[in-house]
């Protein structure tokens, strides 16, 4: 889809709050689609995403299969200052996991 398969994460101060944007590289197969050989592609999708700010857990997201491919999330954190550490960890239904982190700008 024109996207480079790479996790992208941005955290920026905006009017006193921290605005966080996250783009994960993940195929998010629903388990319903078929490949060219007409075989079902097994389900593979992120189920659980957690976000920490400086070791404090601030958000938990549970995803179903209907979350779009290369999932994108954007939300705000109250307050915050430059150089805060924002950290994401995710787990998918086959047990793969990943980590994305950045510092607030």
């Amino acid at each position: 889809m024109g996207l480079v398969a790479k996790d992208r994460i941005r955290a920026k101060l905006k009017k006193g709050n921290t605005s966080v944007r996250l783009l994960l590289a993940h195929p998010m197969h629903t388990g319903r689609a078929k490949n060219k050989a007409d075989e079902l592609i097994p389900a593979e999708f992120i189920q659980d995403i957690r976000c920490w700010r400086n070791e404090e857990e601030v958000l938990t997201i549970k995803c179903g299969t209907a979350t779009a491919r290369n999932p994108y999330f954007s939300f705000q954190l109250v307050g915050g200052k430059a150089d805060d550490l924002i950290e994401f960890r995710w787990v998918d239904n086959v047990g793969a996991k990943g980590l994305a982190e950045t510092r607030v700008k």
């Binding site: 857990e57 601030v58 997201i61 995803c63 979350t67 779009a68 939300f75 705000q76 109250v78």
Partner: peptide, 20 residues
Amino acid sequence: LVMSFDLTPASILPFKSRIK
């Protein structure tokens, strides 16, 4: 159900995402 998320006092809306 597409997704659900739990907010804490530290996190607020607006929340944006993309769905199928």
